[in-house]
């Protein structure tokens, strides 16, 4: 074993992930041999042309989808071996999703939207209230707690979605083009919130095709046709040499 200068905990580790969609006549290779190690408190931007496999990768990391081949370890656990209910629990506790289209429940109040993950997590009412209020305050919407989503602007809705994603203190926040439906100023505000979360120790992976947005991240992974084209660290403060890195050859991970 090589001597490792500074070991940061690996949050997740992807090893030779393939994702193939069988479309009858032909097969679509959405991902081909993607290997990545991501450590705690990394701030990663995934970039690439449309159809390059960014969303597919995010869905696999978020345990919404399973790879056709390859291994995925999340917090040291083999995701492929997990039951349907265990996957639900992972999505519930370890993953916070932020979608391009917000995906709030229209009929429910901001508060209820944010407490929803905790309901499925079986958290008692009092704690739910406390955590939800805390999360809503963090995204600066404490005066809108009883409003419905349709009473908010797009930027505010995305902030609600972020509050919902972070309310359970997840291992990773996954944001798939979180600013895609917002104008650049509002998008900047959203990025400001993500920057703050990162500064507070949150691991964040976001998908974007805007260089400007990607600059917020400290590591940029570029996909092309389902393969990692490049994996660059913008700054090294969060860099990690994961223990697993020494066990397999990683094509993309450069430092």
């Amino acid at each position: 074993m090589a001597v490792i200068p500074e070991i940061k905990e690996t949050t997740l580790s992807l090893n030779a992930i393939d994702k193939t969609y069988d479309m009858g006549v032909e097969q679509v290779h959405a991902l081909r041999g993607v290997s990545l190690d991501i450590c705690r408190n990394e701030y990663i931007a995934i970039m690439g042309a449309s159809g390059s496999g960014k969303s597919t990768l995010m869905n696999i990391i978020g345990c919404l989808d399973s790879p056709s081949a390859g291994a995925y370890y999340l917090e040291g656990e083999n995701v492929a071996a997990m039951s349907e209910n265990q996957l639900s629990e992972i999505r519930n506790r370890q993953i916070g999703f932020v979608f391009q289209t917000f995906n709030l429940i229209a009929r429910a109040s901001i508060f209820h939207n944010v407490e929803l993950p905790m309901i499925y997590g079986g958290i008692p009412r009092g704690e739910r209230r406390r955590y939800a209020e805390e999360a809503i305050t963090r995204v600066g919407l404490n005066d809108r707690i009883k409003h419905k989503p349709n009473e908010l602007s797009g930027g505010q809705r995305q902030r609600v979605a972020i509050a919902r994603a972070l309310v359970f203190n997840p291992s990773i926040i996954l944001a798939d083009e979180p600013t895609g439906n917002l104008d650049s100023r509002t998008g900047g505000e959203i990025m400001g919130i993500l920057d703050e979360l990162h500064a507070a120790g949150q691991t964040i992976i976001l998908v974007t095709h805007e260089e400007e947005i990607a600059q917020h991240a400290s590591r940029v992974i570029r996909l092309k046709d389902g393969e990692v084209e490049s994996d660059l660290r913008v700054d090294d403060t969060d860099a990690c040499i994961a223990p697993s890195e020494s066990l397999h050859l990683v094509g993309g991970a450069t430092s």
Binding site: L64, N85, S88, R91, N92, N103, Y120, G121
Partner: peptide, 10 residues
């Protein structure tokens, strides 16, 4: 879909 993404079981 959303409910499942935030942890609802089947």
């Amino acid at each position: 879909g959303l409910r499942k993404a935030v942890g609802a079981r089947r």
